[in-house]
Design a protein around this nucleic acid. Structure first.
Lengths: 189, 189
DNA sequence: TTAAAGTCTTGACATATGTCAAGCGTTTTC
DNA sequence: GAAAACGCTTGACATATGTCAAGACTTTAA
């Protein structure tokens, strides 16, 4: 599992064999089965997770008990409640394994140490932050400026793997519509 | 105007008189009247704006010509198309003055220089990035998990100044509803 | 292997929100 | 100061989407 992370990091930064070896020992392997909750609202997020295999869902639950998915993360992506993690304050979101997962996680203390000590690690963090922010900006704009049918098309075009890999119920919770509406609209494409 | 920025920076970082003087000369004053477009889709964003006075709207236009506002920014806030700016690629959003504005702007070149040379400036940028990301995450979650009435209440609770300061049409475009629906729902509170 | 749980689809109906139009008051502009 | 533009509210109606229920199919777990 560590090998995947090593590859991921060197891909991003070019060859830097020295500092990679500083970083890797701080990660801990974690195998979690489908349905495992890694974080709940009110809880302080202590880890950043790197996905070696599987899929994580970040979501909230509304007053009627419906889930709204903010984002799905898959292989070679990083997941955490960034703001809650950085400030060590309670989260407002759930993080759940929607498939069996092989994960690597790094603890808050190690993370802070590394960003301070290893510039390349800080650079990766900044990169992740900027990309995450950009994705979330896109997410707001698609949610507000596209109707349900166009959001489905958007998802098929931009995240075809997510579309085919997850259940309709999960996809619907990401698109902000009911599973029934998703079924009906898909037949119109 | 520069004095406001100086105050803003020292408030954030404590006293650091030396480096502030390195930063300030890179900013340029800009007065823009209501309606001025600072950025359009397809255009590469060359500046980061600091608002001394006024209000900026970041929005997109959908296929029917309707505006969807992603965010409003007011006094002492920073506005830019972060991702497009950092990567110098075309934006997908508009940035517009919805009031007469007094702004300070810093050019891409200066910005890169300063983040590389002045750690405190890089720290402010990281802070802004994290807060912006967090706000946008909240925005996704309120859009998908709250109905229109609860989104109005959310806005009144969390951004009362925005609510009273801007037109119903603008507020509605932020909430993802029509101006008529906003009128009707407000009477239910 | 079988029971239980979950998934997808479809129908009937309910509801929230949008659209268009009109009226009226306020603000802006020449 | 008059004309034009704009902003808010309300009504009538259209439409998109949600909710609930049922049936067929598939996957999971004992």
């Amino acid at each position: 599992m560590i090998e995947t992370l090593k590859q991921h990091i060197t891909n991003r930064l070019g060859k830097l064999p020295d500092n990679v070896e500083l970083v890797l020992p701080h990660f801990e392997e974690l195998v979690a089965k489908k349905g495992t909750l890694l974080l709940q609202p009110g809880e302080v997020c202590k880890y950043v997770y790197f996905i070696v295999e599987g899929c994580l869902q970040v979501y909230v639950v509304d007053k009627n008990g419906n889930e709204s998915t903010r984002e799905f993360y898959v292989e070679e992506q990083w997941t955490t409640d960034i703001f809650g993690f950085q400030n060590q304050i309670p989260s407002s979101e759930y993080i759940r394994c929607v498939e069996s997962c092989k994960l690597l996680r790094i603890h808050f203390t190690s993370f802070q140490q590394l960003t301070a000590a290893v510039p390349q690690f800080a650079a990766i963090y900044k990169q992740i932050l900027e990309v995450s922010y950009n994705n979330t900006v896109y997410r707001v704009n698609t949610l507000t400026s596209l109707d349900a049918l166009d959001r489905i098309k958007w998802l098929m075009d931009h995240k075809p793997k997510i579309m085919s890999r997850l259940s309709s119920k999960l996809i619907a919770s990401y698109l902000g519509i009911s599973a029934e509406t998703l079924t009906r609209l898909k037949s119109k494409i």
